[in-house]
Amino acid sequence: MFSGSFLNANDQSDAIAEVGQIYSRGLLPQLIAFTLYYPMQRFLKAQNIINPMAIIVVAVLLFHILISWLAVFVLDFGLLGASITLSISWWVLVLSTCLYIILSPSCRATWTDLSVKAFTDICLFFKLTVSSTIMLILEIWHVQGFVLITGYLLNPEISLNVISICVRIVNELEAAYPRVAKFAVLVMVTTNLILSLIISVLVLILRTLLSKLYTNNH
């Protein structure tokens, strides 16, 4: 809510502070949605209910693409519209996942209803939550810190674009070699896909061995 003042206090330009303030205000509802979704995600993962969760995520992603296009390009809501649609999509994800947990037969044995028993040993749960929260905050700040640092550079917009895509691609475009830049993008995407497939196959093959690393039950 006060990101504009925070950015100004860190010697960021007025233009960056203004758009940062607008965008961050639209993301405020997303914070609550993320807080609600994270426990539900863990609840489903603990039961190995992966496919339904993945289907819900893909459906929400397609929904988000649609409403983002409508908000930004059709209704011309600009930056605020882009951030608000992200919050809306997160709340759709939360509601969809919640309905699945309540209505799905897969969760009938594990989800009965709200109960005061959920607050049993809440102090122990709170200790685990604090450490997990700190790790998550540091992970997010690690990424956002680079974005914040770019504001101190001579041309922050170009610097941020470099971080967002690739230094190699930017260099080729500046040298007026669009075909080489296109080839660099193709190589990068192909390499990422191949590595992702290899790692996924290895995880599937070694899933039994890897699972033993996280439990004492053999």
Rank of each mutant, 00 (worst) to 15 (best):
G4V: 08
L7M: 05
N8L: 13
N8V: 01
A9L: 13
D11R: 07
Q12N: 02
S13T: 12
S13C: 04
D14T: 07
D14E: 13
D14H: 13
D14R: 07
V19E: 07
I22Y: 02
S24V: 09
R25Y: 08
G26K: 02
L27N: 00
L28M: 12
P29E: 07
I32T: 08
F34K: 01
T35G: 07
L36D: 06
Q41G: 11
R42M: 14
F43P: 05
L44C: 04
K45V: 10
Q47P: 04
Q47C: 03
Q47A: 08
N48M: 08
N48T: 10
I49M: 09
N51Y: 15
P52K: 06
M53G: 01
A54E: 09
I55G: 12
V57W: 14
V57A: 13
V60A: 05
I65P: 06
I65V: 15
I67L: 11
I67Y: 12
S68D: 05
L70R: 00
A71Y: 01
F73M: 04
F77C: 01
L79W: 00
L79E: 00
A82R: 02
S83H: 03
T85C: 03
T85D: 00
C98H: 07
C98G: 08
C98Y: 08
Y100M: 12
S104R: 11
C107R: 14
T112V: 06
A118K: 04
F119V: 10
T120I: 02
K127L: 09
K127F: 06
L128W: 10
S131C: 10
T133C: 14
I134E: 13
M135E: 08
L136M: 13
L136R: 14
I137T: 01
E139Y: 03
I140V: 08
I149T: 04
I149V: 12
T150I: 05
T150G: 09
T150P: 06
L154Y: 09
E157H: 07
I158D: 03
R168S: 09
R168D: 12
I169K: 03
V170Q: 15
L173C: 11
L173I: 09
A176N: 15
Y177T: 15
P178M: 15
V180R: 01
A181L: 10
K182T: 12
F183H: 14
A184W: 02
A184Q: 08
A184Y: 04
V185W: 01
L186C: 11
M188Q: 11
L197Q: 10
I198L: 15
I199Q: 02
L202V: 13
V203K: 03
L204M: 15
L206W: 15
L206P: 04
R207S: 12
R207F: 04
T208V: 14
L209S: 05
S211I: 01
N216H: 07
N216W: 09
N217M: 02
N217Q: 13
H218A: 13
